[in-house]
Design a protein around this nucleic acid. Structure first.
Length: 873
RNA sequence: GGGCGCAUAGCUCAGCGGUAGAGCGCCGCUCUUACAAAGCGGAUGUCGGCGGUUCAAAUCCGUCUGUGCCCACCA
């Protein structure tokens, strides 16, 4: 080691031999926040780059799905920040109406109370109290992950500004007649006691029972089939197909409804499928959406037979029974009367369940508020159709169109207490007044506000602009709207993405809320199975972060992020990523020990060794590659490219090849130290958006500069050196082949072998030191006897194994190589003998084959000679 | 009932018209200016089946099988 590098060595801070993320990560994050790196400036001249976080539920805690999406969003914003954008990643939480209300109701239940014991106002206070105490656990976890969000702009969907936004847009939609109130069949959850929208219903195949019941008497009777016998109490007709001759004589007649003293008409409706069941359908307008539609067409009365808890309200033997008890009781009663003509059980059919509590949904006739989605959805579809908004990956756009082009009106009122209360007042004489945010609600005798609140997704639909201050014309809104990328799971395209598109276009004068929708898959376990509590395979990312570091978790997730596809993750993989972080750590340690530096100009190309030029050429190519992948949201490819470049090319080959140079000292060592510094500088920058902690710790040590968070993103300087790349590839081949030979000969890795190298006339001459070093080859002494001669890529390596050469092993090795080369030759020859191929294939393809052939022929000649030269041949 | 996707090494996945790849796992040998959480070397595939297009198919088309997801007012 030269004096100079020794000096630098002494001045370098000591790094431990293992990276300890737990000690590094926390303090770094706090420092970033304190220095305001993540705080965006609405007044800056820089171009904005904005991402709003999909607001996690206030009740939520960080799961791998969040960790995954956050890693990607963080990587995007960190890179853009480094590229000189005014980057804003805006955090916040969703009040999560039903989920939160359920949580607090549970808490109350433990005290033996219900929300009704408290009353509305006190209950809502209690929820706020809960939020302060337990809510937002996820925010702390986001810090652990390293999320570079702007905490000064944190928002909550129930905060004052956002509530104002909700009221403003409600009023605007109401005035534009895009919000209306109507009595319809809605999905009702008898446990949550509220209406829910269509997409909050999850259908699953349940075992049911299809019973066929005879309605009417004698000639004037027919058989209907149903899985929901309890609703028959509310039947107000039977429907048949108009062209169904079996029932033509009954259409228009009244028949007796069993178990009641009512008669109901038989109506003809084309909705009925004559092929299905008996071709006759009982019609219960108040408890089934299809029946409701039939009822509308035939002007049938609606008869509600259940209350909001699903309890029968019809006087008689079934009064007070729960809907499922009533079902069996009614079937039993009908059986006694001999009216059950057929039963089929189990009968598997699709049944709707509440997505919040899994209770079977009860379709129910009720008065609710609706958004008329037609024009809004049209605009939302058009924005994607005409390319103003792009969906990644593209095939997901089909799903988006399926939805927006077929959307039903959206039921937005919820019979809950926690949420944005509907800003409508009703007067004593039936007046209905929608009140804007700056207006006084009507007061006086008989006036009262609607008691319902809005669907949670109503306020989250405003998120990309409400969080920036809308409806006020704030500097933030001007600077950061429209946002750039919306990154979220494909599972909430309908819940959230489509709604933001509708509201954004509507409220912001046709400007879409983002130009790109990047959809991610879902995180799964290492066997590709969905993570769920019932499988017991749910992993808390915090555990892994504690054990392996946040960077390891982040890198693993990014490496799995193939566009739109699900991401499997297992602990082994996190370990592998931790190993990678450790590798980066140690490579940098090595560099520091050898005086790597970023000080001073990078030496001109003429002063660089081929090894230096090779790595710089590869470095620049990698910058270009990584940028291209980032622009295409190919995070897996970004990570993969960096992993291999860093580990294989820089940490293995370049570092190993440079060791001789460093040991040699002198001018060349100084040059390489500068090159290694450069390579590390750029590599750490490239890695930083994905693994921010370890890179920050190392980079600040390496450069002595303030922070990588605000460092400049590398640019492809355009430096390429094909000759150097070819030369180093050749060098790698020589080394690999000799190593293989050594391994075949059973030589131990460290064992030194006398060797004579024939490199003159090849570009490899300059690498003799490295070759000898990496292959443990000693100079040939007086007694040197070449017992093995290897020829690789124009170089010859003669080794003296002092008679210990394992001729059999060598013969086997060579025979194998010869067979491979001969196969290669015959393949290439066949190809080149193919007229059609020569005529039609691209010139480059043909040239490639020719090169292969030439190489194969040379190999055959060489290997044959070596075989012949073997003792005893 | 419609729509979309996927089947490639033991596992999880890239590749998507011109010599089958990665990570993990597996088998050897090694403390060698950083790193054993490492290094070096090695083994492993009728690219789901069958047909077709092409000079050339894991890659394009058809079909079958298996599998996953989404949508739907399946009485």
């Amino acid at each position: 080691m030269t004096e100079n590098t020794q000096q630098q060595h002494d001045s370098v801070p000591e790094l431990p031999t293992q990276y300890a993320p737990a000690e590094v990560e926390g303090p770094l994050y706090e420092r970033w926040v304190e220095r305001g790196y993540f705080t965006a400036d609405a007044t800056s001249d820089k171009k904005p780059y904005t991402i709003v976080i999909p607001p996690p539920n206030v009740t939520g805690s960080l799961h791998l799905g969040h960790a995954f999406q956050h890693t990607l969003m963080d990587a995007l914003t960190r890179r853009k920040r480094m590229q000189g954008y005014e980057a804003l990643w805006l955090p916040g939480m969703d009040h999560a109406g039903i989920a939160t209300q359920n949580k607090v109701e549970q808490q109350l239940a433990e005290e033996g109370k219900s929300r009704h014991d408290l009353g509305r106002e006190a209950f809502v206070d209690r929820v706020w109290q809960w939020k302060e105490e337990y809510g937002g656990k996820i925010l702390g976890q986001m810090r652990r992950l390293g999320d570079g969000v702007d905490w000064s702009r944190e928002r909550f969907t129930m905060d004052e500004g956002l509530s104002k936004a909700v009221q403003t847009i409600f009023k605007k939609l109401y005035d534009d007649e895009l919000i209306y109130r109507a009595e319809r069949i809605i999905n009702w959850c008898p446990r949550c006691l509220t209406a829910i929208s269509d997409i909050e219903v999850e259908y699953q195949e349940d075992d049911g029972e299809l019973v066929s019941i005879r309605y009417g008497e004698g000639d004037e009777s027919l058989v209907v089939a149903t899985t929901r016998a309890e609703t028959m109490l509310g039947d107000t007709a039977v429907a048949v197909h108009p062209e169904d001759e079996r029932y033509a004589h009954l259409v228009g007649k009244q028949i007796k409804l069993p178990l009641t003293d009512r008669t109901i008409p038989v109506v003809a409706d084309t909705h009925v499928d004559p092929e299905f069941g008996t071709g006759a359908v009982k019609v219960t307008p108040a408890h089934d959406p299809n029946d409701f539609a039939i009822g509308q067409r035939h002007d049938l009365p609606s008869m509600t037979v259940m209350d909001e808890r699903g309890v029968i309200t019809v006087h008689g033997p079934f009064l007070g029974l729960d809907r499922f008890e009533a079902r069996s009781a009614i079937v039993g009663a009908l059986r006694e009367q001999g009216r059950i003509v057929a039963e089929k059980r189990p009968y598997v059919h699709s049944v709707g369940h509440c997505s919040r509590c899994s209770t079977t949904v009860e379709p129910r006739l009720s008065m609710q508020w609706w958004v008329k989605v037609g024009p809004l959805a049209q605009a939302a579809g058009d924005a994607v159709r005409d390319g103003r908004v792009k969906i990644h990956p593209e095939d997901m756009s089909k799903r988006y169109f399926d939805w927006v082009d077929n959307m039903h009106d959206w039921c937005i009122s919820r019979q809950l207490w926690w949420g944005h209360r509907i800003p409508v007042w009703y007067g004593p004489e039936g007046q209905v007044v929608c009140v804007g945010p700056d207006e006084e609600p009507p007061s006086g005798e008989g006036w009262h506000q609607d008691t319902d609140v809005l669907d949670t997704w109503f306020s989250s639909g405003l998120w990309p602009f409400s969080t920036l201050g809308w409806p006020e014309k704030t500097p933030d809104l001007a600077k950061f709207y429209a946002t750039d990328v919306l990154l979220t799971g494909h599972d909430i395209i309908f819940f959230w993405v489509a709604r933001m598109m509708m509201f954004g276009l509507y409220a912001m004068d046709g400007v879409a809320p983002f130009h790109t929708i990047a959809l991610t898959g879902l995180v799964r376990d290492e066997r590709g199975k969905k993570m769920s509590k019932s499988f017991g395979n749910v992993v808390d990312p915090l555990d892994w972060m504690d054990q392996y570091g946040s960077d390891a978790v982040r890198f693993t997730l990014a490496k799995g992020a193939n566009p739109g596809t699900d991401v499997p993750i297992g602990e082994d993989w996190v370990q592998a990523s931790r190993n990678f972080a450790n590798k980066i750590w140690n490579a940098t340690r090595f560099a520091l020990m050898n005086g790597a530096t970023v000080e001073g100009e990078l030496p001109a190309a003429e002063r660089l060794s081929a090894t230096d030029r090779w790595i710089l050429s590869r470095l620049n190519a990698t910058v270009a590659e990584v940028d291209a992948y980032y622009e295409d949201y190919q995070f897996a490819k970004v990570s993969d490219a960096l992993y291999h470049f860093a580990w294989d090319e820089v940490f293995d080959w370049y570092v190993e090849l440079s060791k001789t140079t460093f040991m040699g000292g002198g001018e060349q060592a100084k040059v390489s130290a500068r090159v290694l510094g450069e390579v590390l500088d750029v590599t750490l920058k490239l890695l930083h958006p994905i693994v921010p902690f370890v890179t920050e710790a190392l980079w600040t040590t390496l450069t002595g500069k303030e922070s990588l968070v605000v460092a400049e993103w590398p640019k492809d300087g355009g430096f390429r050196d094909a000759a150097a790349e070819a030369e180093i590839e050749n060098l790698q081949q020589v080394i690999t082949e000799v190593r293989r030979f050594r391994a075949d000969q059973g030589l131990q890795p460290g064992q030194r072998v006398p060797a004579r190298l024939g490199l003159s006339g090849t570009a490899l001459a300059a690498h003799e030191g490295a070759i000898r070093q990496l292959l443990r080859l000693q100079p040939a002494g007086e007694e040197f006897q070449a017992t093995a001669n290897l020829t690789i890529g124009g170089a010859t390596v003669a080794l003296d194994l002092s008679g210990t050469i394992d001729v059999e092993a060598e013969r086997k090795r060579l025979a194998k190589a010869l067979a491979a080369a001969e196969k290669e030759k015959s393949q290439a020859t066949a190809k080149l003998g193919n007229e059609a191929f020569l005529a039609k294939a691209a010139e480059a393809a043909v040239e490639k084959i020719r090169t292969r052939l030439a190489k194969a022929e040379a190999d055959i000649e060489r290997i044959s000679a070596q075989l012949a030269a073997l003792p005893g041949a």
